[in-house]
């Protein structure tokens, strides 16, 4: 009986250490992935917005996983205009050391474009980083107002 309890006690200690180790690893992975996402790479900005003459707007964000575990990064954009909400989203799962792009495409009609210019729309951006099969994560949501 005593030997079993000793084994069980050792098992619990090892499990606890593994949990703390995983906790440290996931925090490191998420924080470094966020840092790799919001910081510019060389002369390239991390966050870009392009509007083509046809009216298609492409929001792109560069993502790098500098951590030690797989990471899923999510990028959501919400454009709130008077009486209308446009929601866009994309996600990407990266292995350690990998990098990629998340792109959000939206085609605005002439009316929407006009409203976008005349009214002051509210723009919400949400970036989320998750790891350990998406069980752990950090997300940042902010409202960006323009032209003030």
């Amino acid at each position: 009986m005593k030997a079993y309890v000793k084994v069980l006690s050792a098992l619990v200690t090892v499990t606890e250490l593994v949990v703390y180790g995983l906790f440290a690893l996931s925090i490191f992975t998420i924080v470094t992935s966020f840092a790799g996402t919001i910081t510019p790479v060389g002369d390239k900005q991390a966050f870009n917005m392009e509007v083509s003459p046809s009216g298609e707007t492409v929001f792109s964000i560069k993502v790098r996983n500098q951590g030690l575990l797989d990471t899923t990064m999510r990028f959501n954009l919400q454009l709130v205009m008077q009486g209308e909400t446009i929601e866009l989203g994309d996600s990407i799962t990266l292995k350690p050391g990998e990098e990629g792009d998340m792109k959000l495409r939206v085609s605005l009609t002439k009316e929407q474009m006009l409203r976008l210019i005349t009214q002051r729309p509210r723009l919400f951006i949400k970036i989320e980083g998750r790891t350990l099969e998406e069980r752990v994560g950090i997300s940042v949501k902010t409202e960006v107002g323009g032209g003030q």
């Binding site: 950090i138 997300s139 940042v140 949501k141 902010t142 409202e143 107002g145």
Partner: peptide, 9 residues
């Protein structure tokens, strides 16, 4: 940018 909401899960 007024403020950001950070959610830790």
């Amino acid at each position: 940018v007024s403020e950001a909401t950070i959610t830790f899960d």
